[in-house]
């Protein structure tokens, strides 16, 4: 039976009517047209569907949309502040951490969840936090570099603030 639910995504409330078997990823991409979150394996293996729910990184392909009601969902589209990119987005560009780009939104969302909890991560912390995210292109080194760089940029931005 279809249910009417409200999803809070990137600060906006969306009223949608969905059947319970619909995943959060399907609703984000097909109903809300937020196609930044990618559909790769669609079964929990690759992490390119990663979004934040209440600040916690989760696989949206294995989350029912109905389970995400009343919670705060953040997708890759919600990171930039107007034209100002999130430090992690900026760092991905600076560190050349993207090749085909398919894994990038998921990598960034896992990285954002990490930096929220741990603003000074070690390389091991980064490897662990991004452990469920697969990349078939880069070999990971530059992705990890980008997260470490973002942590540094975040500290600099914080210090520069009056």
């Amino acid at each position: 039976m279809k249910t009417a639910i409200t999803l809070r995504v990137n600060g906006d409330a969306y009223d949608v009517v969905v059947p319970p078997q619909r995943t959060l990823l399907e609703v984000l991409r097909d109903k809300l047209l937020l196609t930044g979150s990618k559909q790769g394996c669609d079964k929990g293996d690759c992490g390119c569907c990663t979004v934040l729910i209440d600040g916690e990184a989760v696989l949206s392909c294995l989350t029912l949309a109905v389970e995400a009601q009343e919670r705060d969902i953040t997708t890759i589209e919600g990171l930039a502040d107007g034209d100002v990119l999130h430090p992690l987005q900026e760092a991905f560009i600076r560190a050349w951490a993207t090749q085909c780009g398919f894994c990038t939104p998921g990598m960034i969302m896992s990285g954002v969840a990490l930096l929220e909890k741990n603003p000074t991560p070690s390389l091991d912390d980064v490897r662990r936090a991004l452990g469920s995210n697969l990349c078939r292109c880069t070999g990971y080194v530059k992705i990890f570099d980008a997260v470490i760089l973002a942590a540094q940029m975040q500290r600099e931005r914080a210090a520069a603030q009056p």
Binding site: E56, A57, G131
Partner: peptide, 9 residues
């Protein structure tokens, strides 16, 4: 267990 995201979910 699995990776970080599996442990969180």
């Amino acid at each position: 267990v699995g990776g970080n995201l599996h442990q969180h979910m």
